[in-house]
């Protein structure tokens, strides 16, 4: 199995204002929604039953919170490398992500600090809906994160 190369990002190499690589997924098909419900054990009907979601006043089935958190963790770990820890991810749900939409994670470094022997980087994180050309349509989920990075010291 050929897997992508994953390298450590070192604390000393991070700068405030730095953006980390984005990750996009979509268009999210109904099959995606069912796969995610199964893989996350989340059978809340609003995530897979279109009629139920619409009865709740929502436009369509919508993606669950923990999938969004997982996607942010994927982006943070891909950037931080195999020895990093996504110590904290906090997100606030905005507009729902529904079928056939494509989303992209984004993050920007807002701070660097060392505490209790750990080297921590703070980030603002958010998720955009994007069009087929990759242009942002709207910001849908916002939050913050802290990642523990290895040090060269």
């Amino acid at each position: 199995m050929q897997l992508p190369e994953v390298k450590d990002t070192f604390f000393e190499d991070v700068e405030i204002g730095q953006e980390i690589p984005t990750i996009s997924m979509g268009p999210l098909s109904h099959t995606h929604f069912l796969t995610i419900a199964s893989s996350h054990h989340d059978w809340y009907p609003g995530h897979h039953d279109v009629e139920y979601a619409r009865e709740q006043g929502l436009p369509d089935i919508f993606m669950n919170t923990t999938w969004q958190c997982g996607l942010f963790q994927r982006a943070l770990c891909a950037w931080g490398g195999p020895n990093s820890i996504p110590r904290r991810v906090k997100i606030k749900m905005g507009r729902p992500i529904v079928r056939y939409e494509t989303v992209m994670t984004k993050a920007i470094v807002t701070g660097r600090r060392s505490e209790d022997g750990e080297h921590l980087v703070d980030l603002d994180i958010w998720m955009d809906k994007i069009d087929p050309s990759g242009n942002e349509i709207e910001k849908i989920t916002t939050g913050s994160a802290t990642v523990v990075l290895p040090s060269k010291a």
């Binding site: 199995m1 897997l3 992508p4 994953v6 997924m25 796969t35 995610i36 199964s38 893989s39 996350h40 999938w67 997982g70 996607l71 963790q73 994927r74 770990c77 891909a78 195999p82």
Partner: peptide, 20 residues
């Protein structure tokens, strides 16, 4: 592996014993 399918994460930490 089923969980990782949901977020389509190819990070070798989750897939490769040798890498990990």
């Amino acid at each position: 592996e089923h969980f990782v399918e949901g977020i389509e994460d190819s990070n070798p930490l989750y897939w490769s014993e040798e890498f990990s």
